[in-house]
Design a protein around this nucleic acid. Structure first.
Lengths: 310, 310
DNA sequence: CGCGATTGTTCGGATAATCCGCACAGTCGT
DNA sequence: ACGACTGTGCGGATTATCCGAACAATCGCG
């Protein structure tokens, strides 16, 4: 009987391209990966990997196995969910991936509520960038993710993922108190701090500036929004900041409204095969209660329209 | 991720009723079974077994898991078959269960042909009674079985099993040479040797005698048809014997035709999910060539009518 | 009613599977 | 041509798995 653990390894090889990357992603040594794949090949009796240069790629048979295994794993996971649903107490483990500002603005409250309402439930939280986190949920490295979507930057929608809107997070221009800046145009020639190139956040931020008629002078790049705050506080830069970074505390910089009052949409995503698990449902319900009241306020009118799972 | 090996154990518990029986069937110790099931329970977080007296039965959740796992295992096996079909050379292992007279009448020729035509193929042969063998194929303990069906005693047909007719095996009355018996009626007051009570063979044999107007005096009971021959040869008993027991050698007893010239139908059965595997197809084709020419002669006219897989 | 047989479970120790670190050969980019 | 990659074997350590024996509970049979 085909060992599903090994087949998962082949899946990851197809995803990452190299054995070293798989080893890194799953916290194994490259030699283990190599050995297990060799065992898988002799288990199936068909060559699955082919060396091309110093890399490897799947043979047609390997690709067939990966695709078929996806369906099997999904069915198995669905069965697990049905099994968990027979119990009335919510228990088990949920591996949750969150980005930094959600970790500060949502998670603390959520943890208190979870401990109170579902003491049997174990929640493991890891900080991860939204872009990679969605892939990792798909690859079963996490069960649930809090992700974001910037205006006009729809995140890729995989059919296997169940997406539920969580709220709207207002985006504002953050400037040092007493800097004299009163509008976006005033910040045109200031130094900016933005997230690294390639992120949806960065792309959106640059677009905002260009629409306002200037190219931002990006002098600082970091994914750490707390660093953004520090730089803005000290007057070294201005930044576009979502409300969530304040985590309920009073902001110590001046926040100015942007034209059109833009928001980033927050949502959670889980694999469709696990979306019915009581543990997932419970965490999601608690997360919805834990979001900033201001953000939640903007939520109901979009709730039904955005809902994805059919 | 749910370990399918452990789920299989639960399947077997549902099938056999007790952990000891599972241990016996799979050649494990009872303590291993108990430990693995305990691990499975804490893996899913739901109680699957319930002690009732000194036995144990599945909880509703356990039953749900077993049923769902059946579908998953079938899909996985189908995937394995598709994978094996990508190779042109027939290889791998086929576990074949045969009953005794098939082992003598078919298997030797089949092994020669297999070694010649499919040297890469490994075939493991186990002697087993047809009644249990069909169950064991279903439970994945064997991949293919040669089974029999006596007139008016249709073997239970599972939907998951793919059944292919193999041939007809004539049944005759065997008596000692020079015993003076010329018909079934002459054997009415002789001592009989028959297979054990509960087998289809036995039930059919008794019916034949009753239709002929007498109740057989069954003085010897054994499933070993070679022992039947020995007893008939020595003149201690008469018996109803299929032609296949002679394995191509000349019979050393007198064989008399029975009224209606009855036959037992031989067929092979494999799980539907593995019926497409090249290895299974190859073994079946060789088996069809290896059956006694006399038996194969009666085959073609029933071939298409009996074919099951749609 | 009592005794033996059977069943499931637990505990220590043996066995086998798995994983790691290291060294090596081949390949790619600079 | 060199260094930084890639994948892959080998020996040893770690871990999971399995077994045998002992135990309590239950059932069947005399």
């Amino acid at each position: 009987m085909l060992d599903l653990r090994r087949v998962t390894l082949l899946r990851e090889v197809h995803r990452h391209g190299t054995l070293h990357a798989v080893a890194r992603a799953l916290s194994y040594s490259p030699s283990s990966i190599s050995q297990q794949l060799r065992l898988l090949e002799q288990e199936v009796g068909v060559p699955l990997l082919e060396r091309s240069g110093r890399r490897v790629h799947l043979t047609p048979a390997g690709l067939l196995l990966v695709e078929g295994a996806g369906a099997v794993l999904t069915d198995l996971e669905r069965l697990e969910s049905a099994l968990a649903a027979t119990e009335q107490t919510v228990s088990g483990t949920v591996r949750l991936a969150v980005f930094q500002s959600a970790a500060l603005g949502i998670v603390p409250r959520a943890l208190s509520l979870l401990a109170e309402r579902y003491p049997q439930l174990r929640v493991e939280i890891t900080q991860r960038e939204p872009e990679s986190a969605l892939d990792e949920v798909w690859a079963r490295e996490f069960d649930l993710v809090i992700a974001e979507e910037y205006p006009a930057h729809g995140a890729p929608r995989r059919r296997e993922l169940d997406r539920v809107p969580l709220g709207q997070d207002a985006l504002r221009l953050g400037v040092a108190s007493g800097s004299g800046i009163r509008s976006l145009a005033d910040a045109a020639d200031r130094a900016w701090v933005m997230e690294p190139r390639g992120t949806a956040s960065r792309h959106w931020a640059e677009q905002v500036c260009r629409v306002a008629g200037f190219e931002p002078d990006v002098r600082f790049e970091t994914a750490d929004l707390q660093a953004h705050i520090t730089l803005v506080e000290a007057g070294h830069a201005v930044a576009l900041l979502p409300d969530l970074v304040w985590g309920g505390r009073d902001p110590r910089v001046s926040l100015l409204a942007l034209p059109g009052e833009p928001h980033r949409s927050l949502f959670t995503a889980a694999r469709s095969s696990t979306a019915d698990r009581p543990a997932i449902v419970a965490v999601r319900s608690v997360l919805a209660l834990s979001i900033e009241p201001a953000a939640r306020a903007g939520y109901p009118e979009r709730a039904t329209a955005d809902k994805e799972h059919p």
